[in-house]
């Protein structure tokens, strides 16, 4: 049974001077008990989609249903069955304890006190911050605040829970705990976990299915494994010395479908990750780079990742896509 259904959803932001198509005819279905990832670079439309699904924004056209309720016509009903958390909002009130903060948020959903107390203890235990519950918020470390934020999103026992870049800035240990929690919530409590992220590793590790989004359009939706299987072209990493030279756009190299460049300005080296039309183009790419003054120090064939799937669809990596939006 689908807990999130999105049909032909479009959202346009208009100002006097600009018209931005943030979502372009998006179609999705997310099942009960599924961990679903929305993967794309910053500015791809992930947050806009979550804001529509959490009733904060109206779509320009199309339809979205969450837990069986229309996000436009039945916004109040949707709000009662969802949870939401992002790494960018404040966790709560600084001079109030973690426990009181969680109690406050439970009251926004009308959770009875005894039930709220039980859930606070349960979530604190799951996220391992019981010993922090009676400390004021400003005394908590960033890691504990982030855990509190996640507990807040689950305090009302939601049917569908939305997380927007939940592990941004989190330490490795906390991020691992959080990912385990997402999977547990989906498997044990049959919640739909809807995760917007630009973290490829996260999407691959925990998502049952992933939708790749760019410039408001869904490029592909499938399991991470199937998405990678669709990429039948070789992925090669070229280690180069770029002192005094410019790599330029990898797509301008003959035989390259797309690529992404990670520069290390200190050592004046660059890792160029490219997807080739086929293996035979490798020598040609090396020659073309050397003609541009870029010395190729070595190369290796890689297993494809979800970013490679993205590159194969749009020709560039997340970093290039984000830079192009800044211009």
């Amino acid at each position: 049974m689908a807990n999130v259904e999105v049909e032909s959803l479009t959202r346009v932001f208009e100002t006097r001077s600009r018209r931005v198509l943030a979502l372009d005819n998006v179609n999705l279905e997310v099942e009960k008990g599924e961990v679903f990832g929305l993967l794309g670079p910053n500015g791809a439309g992930k947050t806009t989609l979550i804001r529509i699904l959490t009733t904060l924004l109206l779509p320009t056209s199309g339809r979205a249903v969450v837990g069986g309720f229309d996000v436009v016509k039945e916004a109040k009903k949707v709000r009662g069955i969802i949870g939401f958390s992002s790494s960018s909002e404040r966790v709560g009130f600084d001079f109030v304890t973690a426990r009181r903060n969680l109690w406050f948020f439970s009251q926004l959903y009308g959770v009875p006190k005894s039930e709220a107390d039980r859930r606070i203890e349960e979530l604190a235990s799951l996220l391992e911050f019981q010993d922090q519950l009676d400390r004021k918020l400003y005394m908590l470390t960033t890691g504990y605040k982030q855990r509190l934020n996640l507990a807040r999103a689950l305090i009302n026992d939601p049917t569908v829970v939305f997380f927007d870049e939940p592990t941004n800035g989190m330490d490795v240990f906390s991020a691992k705990k959080v990912r385990e929690l997402f999977v547990r919530e989906a498997r044990v409590n049959s919640r739909t976990v809807f995760l917007a992220t630009h973290n490829m590793f996260e999407a691959e590790e925990i998502c049952d299915r992933v939708a790749i989004i760019d410039r408001g359009r869904i490029l592909a939706v499938d399991t991470p494994e199937n998405l990678k299987l669709t990429l039948d072209k070789p992925v090669v990493m070229l280690e180069t010395d770029v002192a005094g030279a410019s790599v330029g756009d990898p797509r301008t190299l003959d035989g390259v479908v797309g690529g992404t460049v990670k520069l290390d300005s200190e050592s004046e080296t660059a890792n160029i990750r490219v997807i080739l039309r086929d293996e035979d183009y490798l020598d040609k790419v090396v020659t073309l780079l050397e003609r541009r003054g870029v010395k190729v120090l070595g190369y290796q064939r890689l297993e494809p990742t979800l970013e490679d799937v993205f590159i194969s669809k749009v020709g560039a990596g997340f970093a290039e896509r984000e830079r192009s939006l800044e211009v």
């Binding site: 009733t55 904060l56 009662g80 969802i82 960018s88 807040r152 009302n156």
Partner: peptide, 13 residues
């Protein structure tokens, strides 16, 4: 500005 209003609006409160 701190994102708390978002939490209020997306709840039934």
């Amino acid at each position: 500005r701190s994102g708390m209003l978002y939490l209020y609006i997306s709840s039934p409160a």
